[in-house]
Every structure is written in C-alpha cells, then in structure tokens.
Simulated assay, not measured.
Amino acid sequence: MSWLEVTPGEAPLIVALPHSGTDLADVEADFRSPELALWDADWWVDRLYAFARDLDATVVRTAVSRSVVDVNRDPSGASLYPGQATTELCPTTTFDGEPLYAGAVPDETEVARRTQGWFVPYHTALAGEIARLRVRHERVVLYDAHSIRSHVPRLFEGKLPLFNIGTFGGVSCSPVLSAAVQEICAANGQSHVLNGRFKGGWTTRNYGEPDKGVHAIQMELAMRGYLDEAGDWPPVFDPERAAPMRAVLTKILRRCIRFAEAHG
C-alpha cells in the first residue's frame, strides 16, 4: 500500500505519524476545497522527525489526510474529549468549525468504507510493529507525534505551550518516562504541560499498557516552534528554524529508548 509507510527499526521505539498526510484519496472531489481539507494537517511533522530513523526507531506513517479518516480517533465514533469541541472519525468540520463538505457529509456506510480502507490497515501495521519489537524487547515505547497551530480558540483558550505531553492521565505510560520528558523540556527552557488540553488520542489510549510492556506517549507540538504560523498557509518547512526544536526532540526520543532499555 503506497499510502502506508512502515520503516522498521530495531530500537525499542516506535514513532507514529497519523496526521502528516496530505493525500485526499478518492474523496477529494467531495470536499469544499482541497486547501480547506488540508488546513489542519500536522504540517511537516514527518520531516521534523526524519532523524528518528537514524536512531533505529520504527516509523509508521499514513500519507492519507486526517480529513479522509482520522486514524487517531475512536473507531466506535465515541468522543475522546466529551463535552469539548473536537473532530470526528471522518471529520465534517475544520478545527475552526468550518464545514468541510459543500453537500452531504459521510454517512454510516461511507464512514465504514473509509475505516476499513485506511484506519484498519494503519492500526494493523502499528500493532504488528509493536508485537515484532516486543519479541526482542521487554519494554517498548510508542511515541505518537503531532502538531497543531498555537491558537485554535474553538479547541482551547490562549496560546498552547510548545510541548504538550499526553499520557491519558498517567494511564498509558510509566510516570518515570513522562517525568523524564518533562525534565528535558524544562532543561531546555521550553514551555510544556503534561495532560493538559491534549491527553492522548486513540493511539495512546488503545496501545498504552505499561504492565504489558508498552508505554505510549503523545506529543502535541505547537507549530510555532518549528515553522512560521503567521505566513502563507500551508507553511513551508525551514530546516534552520526547526533545528532548535528538533534538537530537543532528539533528546526526548533518545531518552525514550534509554528508558525502554533500562527497564527491559
């Protein structure tokens, strides 16, 4: 499957990239515009974390846009954040609340088709890589990589911290790991929060089972840390601007690996 990218590594770390895709698949014509459908992509997160392969981490990425089907949502359709604004398994609006479709939104049959076509294969691959690494390592860290605009009033008030760490309220990974990630952010003078507005999506909540050797952690980055949010949209990727944040992320992923090895 050309849209599903799996790069196996041997380190006890998997980096998941569920939202950096810009392929609107066979439903592009259904959206009001391709530009609007791609507005909320995790722009350039795949390039930001390209170094993960040099750490011998496994990388799992879907090239299909989250607007087609969001592989980080509960497949049952249940909200991950009851009572708070969010988007669906097959989103019908942008984060700002703008309608994605000019006509009818995906019905139950269409949602099921997209789930089977893209959601299920992505998670089959992710689960397979976890199982493969667990044969070799007693502990594995699943790191779910995201980013979002710093200001999205419909989703949260004010300006988002640069590093937003989610562990489903401490359920999905050891507190030793989450504390280590926070320490790196603090040591490098980066604003951060643990289990703030973003506590971890479906990936973190579904796979994080510390007692079974799988420690899942979500990182939601504020985009201003690596690109110009005030410029034209979609933004361009500037390696020099991204370098400081990438340096901190490199320390974080290295710490994830050391954590897994030390507790293995």
Results as ranks from 00 to 15, higher is better:
155 L>E: 02
68 V>M: 03
119 F>C: 12
133 L>Q: 11
171 V>Q: 15
124 T>V: 11
147 S>G: 06
52 A>H: 08
115 T>D: 01
54 D>I: 07
144 D>F: 03
85 A>N: 15
144 D>R: 01
164 N>Q: 09
70 D>S: 08
125 A>I: 09
82 P>I: 12
50 A>Y: 04
153 P>K: 05
36 L>A: 00
84 Q>F: 14
41 A>T: 09
144 D>K: 02
82 P>T: 07
148 I>H: 03
128 G>M: 11
147 S>V: 09
123 H>Y: 10
150 S>E: 08
73 R>T: 05
92 T>M: 10
170 G>T: 07
148 I>Y: 05
90 C>Y: 14
69 V>G: 01
152 V>Y: 00
34 P>L: 01
59 V>G: 06
126 L>C: 12
109 T>N: 08
138 E>D: 14
161 P>C: 06
37 A>I: 07
70 D>Q: 13
34 P>K: 02
159 K>E: 12
147 S>A: 11
159 K>V: 07
43 W>S: 05
34 P>N: 04
156 F>A: 05
157 E>P: 00
122 Y>F: 15
106 P>E: 08
163 F>I: 13
128 G>C: 11
66 R>V: 01
134 R>N: 13
41 A>P: 00
116 Q>V: 06
48 L>S: 09
88 E>H: 11
94 T>M: 14
114 R>E: 00
94 T>I: 15
55 L>E: 06
40 D>A: 03
80 L>V: 05
92 T>N: 09
71 V>L: 03
72 N>Y: 02
63 A>E: 11
98 E>Q: 13
132 R>Y: 13
169 G>P: 08
137 H>K: 04
140 V>H: 09
56 D>M: 02
94 T>C: 13
105 V>T: 15
147 S>P: 12
35 E>T: 05
78 A>R: 07
61 R>H: 04
95 F>H: 15
122 Y>D: 14
101 Y>K: 15
84 Q>Y: 15
86 T>G: 15
157 E>D: 12
127 A>S: 13
134 R>P: 14
49 Y>E: 11
123 H>Q: 08
129 E>I: 07
164 N>S: 13
161 P>A: 07
91 P>L: 14
84 Q>N: 13
46 D>M: 13
37 A>T: 01
88 E>Y: 06
64 V>D: 03
50 A>K: 04
170 G>M: 11
129 E>C: 06
54 D>M: 10
129 E>N: 06
96 D>K: 15
168 F>K: 12
104 A>L: 12
75 P>A: 04
41 A>G: 01
42 D>G: 00
165 I>H: 09
114 R>M: 03
104 A>I: 05
68 V>L: 04
100 L>D: 12
56 D>G: 03
172 S>A: 15
52 A>T: 08
76 S>T: 07
113 R>W: 06
170 G>Y: 04
102 A>N: 10
54 D>Y: 08
157 E>T: 06
100 L>A: 14
39 W>I: 08
141 V>I: 10
158 G>H: 02
150 S>R: 08
155 L>G: 00
160 L>M: 14
87 T>W: 15
54 D>Q: 14
137 H>C: 02
136 R>M: 14
105 V>N: 01
135 V>N: 11
90 C>R: 14
40 D>C: 03
42 D>C: 00
107 D>A: 00
137 H>L: 05
74 D>V: 04
156 F>L: 05
154 R>V: 05
164 N>E: 11
51 F>S: 11
149 R>H: 09
39 W>F: 01
138 E>G: 15
108 E>N: 06
164 N>M: 08
59 V>Y: 12
31 F>D: 01
73 R>C: 00
60 V>F: 04
